[in-house]
Amino acid sequence: PPQTPIRAAMTSIQQLRGDLTSSGDQPSTNLATYFKNCTVDPTQDVLKRLETLGQAFSQRFGQAVGPRCIVLGRQRFNLGVKLYYKVMEAMLKSEEKRLSVQNFSKLLNDSTFHTSLLACALEVVMATYGESSFRTGGYNHGSGGVDAAETNVCFPWILDVVNLSAFDFYKVIESFIKADPTLSKDIVKHLETCENLIMERIAWRTGSPLFELLKQEHEGGAAEQVETPAS
């Protein structure tokens, strides 16, 4: 049958859900082992963060799409969590191979890393359901049963929901694409568009951590600064 935008969207959704069927909403045995190998076990912090951000996401999704869609928001979030765990495990496997270490305590206790990874997973889910499509393309079918045409859940909406700077989100995109080779061409394109938006505009807004980093770089790097006598 001929490919239509709706058929393409339905195929993407089925593919995403299919790819995540075997992924649980809890860390896999392998991922749990990475957590246990840490000097400080991040498990409880990870679960607590997911609970807090899950509530924020469902609530904000309901506000943006309609109060009857809070349950739908929760479903999107749960799918995002599965993808978050799946990609985290793949990233750690790749890092273990590259660095020959098994203790990722610092990374796995970094709240910004987890929030960025989760935000990217949620953006992939939202884009798959057509809820984060950029309107320049000319259509937005809200193929998951949500009429998102009147709402504003397009990127960078997710950054505001999880309270993340665009600059920190940017860091995770390339590794995310590398770690999940099953992402469709359209989703990769979507993430690339997010990347470009950050690079060209969002990272330069007032309050971006980029300015502090540029300042440090200009001063020769924070680590190289001469300590004052007092310290």
């Binding site: 890092e95 590259r98 660095l99 990374l107 890393f113 860091k171 995770v172 694409i177 061409k185 394109k189």
Partner: peptide, 21 residues
């Protein structure tokens, strides 16, 4: 396959990007 341009070098992973190496 997609046309995404991978810019990170082999020695750059997620650990370095979050300053955790």
């Amino acid at each position: 396959s997609h046309d995404y341009h991978f810019g990170l070098e082999d020695h750059e992973g997620i650990s370095e990007l979050f300053d955790c190496d």
